Amino acid sequence: METETNPGKKKNSVKMRGLTTTIVVAVLVVIVGMNSYAQVEYGHVGLYKTFGKLNSNVLSPGIHFKIPFIQNVIQVNTQVTKAETDTSASSKDLQPVSTHVAVNYSVNKESAYNLMNNIGGSFDSIIINPAVQEIVKEVTARYQAEDLIARRDVVAGEISEHLTQRLAKYDLIVNEINIVNFKFSDAFNQSIEAKQVAQQQALKASNDLKRIEIEAKQKVAQAQAEAEALKLKKQEVTPELVQLKQIEVQEKALEKWDGKLPTVTGGATPFIDIQSLTNQ
C-alpha cells in the first residue's frame, strides 16, 4: 500500500511545482511588461536615462517603450512656472530696500537635454534665484528710493531685460517679471508720508489762491460791466426823454386828483400845468 501511495504524492508535488512556476513566470512577465513603457505627461518632455546616463533624444508627450530595469524616463516641465525671490538691496540714495519678485519662466523644449545634463532638476534654486537677486541689486542701485516707487514698471522692465539675457545661456525663457512689493524702512515711509502731506497742503493753498484770484477777477469784471451799463444808460437820457417822463408823472397825478386841494399838506403841493395839458 505504501508503494501505491507514494507515486500519487509525487504527481501532486510535480503539479504544484509546475503551477507555482507558471504563476511566477506570469508575474515576471507582468512586471517586465509594466516596466517596458513610460508615459510622458502633457506639458512635459521626456529624456531616456540608461544606467544614470541621459540620452539626448527628447520625447514628446505620450507613451514610449524602454528597456525594463535598465532604462527609465525622466520628465521635464515645459509649462510656464513661477519662481518667487526675496532680495535685500540699497537704492542710489542708500535707502535699504527689500524686494519681492515673481518670475514666470519656461524651459525650451529643444534644449531640455542640455539643461538637465548640465544643471539638473534643481535649476530654479541653482540658476534662477541667484540671478534674480544679483540683477535686482544691480538695478535697484541705479534709482532713488522714491523713483523705485514712481517708476516701478520701468524698473521691472530693466530687470526683465537683464534676466532674459542671463537665463538664455541656460535655455530658460523669461515670460514675465512682476515686482510684487517694495519694502522700505519705517523712517523712510514716515518721510514719504510727511512729504505727501506737505504737497497736499501746498496744492490746497495754490488752489485757494487761484480761487481767490478768479473771484477777484469776476468781481472786477462785474463792476466793469455795471459801470459800462450805467454809462450807456446815461447816454440814453435826453431832454426829450426827461420831458416825456415828467408828462407821464403829471398824467398819473391828474388821474388820481379829485379836483379838490388838500386842506392839510405835509409838504409842497406838486405843480400841475393845467393849461399846457388842456392845450395838448
Rank of each mutant, 00 (worst) to 15 (best):
M1T: 10
T3E: 14
T3F: 09
T5F: 09
T5G: 02
S13D: 15
K15T: 12
M16D: 12
R17P: 00
R17F: 08
L19Q: 04
V25Y: 00
A26E: 03
V27W: 03
V27D: 06
L28C: 08
V30S: 06
G33T: 02
M34C: 07
M34F: 09
Q39Y: 03
V40M: 03
E41H: 05
E41P: 01
G43L: 04
V45T: 07
V45N: 05
L47T: 08
L47R: 05
Y48C: 04
F51L: 12
N55I: 08
N57A: 12
N57V: 13
L59C: 07
H64W: 09
Q71D: 07
N77H: 04
T78C: 15
T78M: 09
T78S: 10
Q79E: 14
T81W: 05
T87W: 04
A89S: 11
S91D: 06
D93L: 14
S98L: 08
T99F: 00
V101S: 02
V103M: 11
Y105W: 14
Y113K: 07
G120D: 03
S125C: 02
I126A: 12
I128N: 01
I128K: 01
A131S: 12
A131M: 05
Q133K: 11
K137D: 07
K137W: 04
E138G: 12
R142N: 14
Y143H: 15
Y143T: 14
A145Y: 05
L148C: 12
V155H: 02
G157K: 13
S160G: 15
Y170I: 06
Y170W: 09
N178E: 03
F182T: 07
S185P: 12
A187T: 09
N189C: 04
N189D: 11
E193N: 15
K195G: 14
Q196W: 10
Q199C: 01
Q201V: 12
Q201M: 10
A202H: 02
K204R: 13
L209E: 13
L209H: 08
K210S: 06
K210A: 14
K210M: 07
R211L: 10
I214A: 10
A216Y: 00
E226H: 09
E228Q: 13
A229E: 09
L230P: 00
Q235K: 13
Q235M: 13
E240R: 04
L241I: 02
Q243G: 11
Q246T: 11
V249C: 04
E251K: 15
E251Y: 13
E255F: 04
K256P: 01
L261T: 08
G267R: 05
T269V: 13
P270W: 00
F271Q: 09
D273G: 11
Q275T: 11
T278Q: 11
